[in-house]
Amino acid sequence: MAQWVDACAADAVGNEDVIRFDHAGRTFAVYRSPEDKYYATDGLCTHEKVHLCDGLVMDNIIECPKHNGRFDYKTGQARGAPCIINLKTYPTKVEGGRVFIDIA
């Protein structure tokens, strides 16, 4: 069963940027790609649980602000040391200017 939650206004995330979204004790990262598509992943780096929202988005890559671990935020794939565990991703949709993510 899908469980869509309203994460943020679509324009709250800058182009090629990321923001943090907390919901029911969980934390997520919501991304807007250079092509203005939206993506969502778990909010914490799989290496040392650092909030990825403080990191830099470059094309399809989010880089952790603490130790420069990298992930492809579209697929969750770990793409650079020290990260070896992939990041969980979540489906997104935009409706009425809001970004929803399916956290099920």
Partner: peptide
């Protein structure tokens, strides 16, 4: 504080 300078240092 926190990771407030990380992005700019990276850039």
């Amino acid at each position: 504080p926190g990771n407030s300078v990380a992005r700019d240092v990276k850039l």
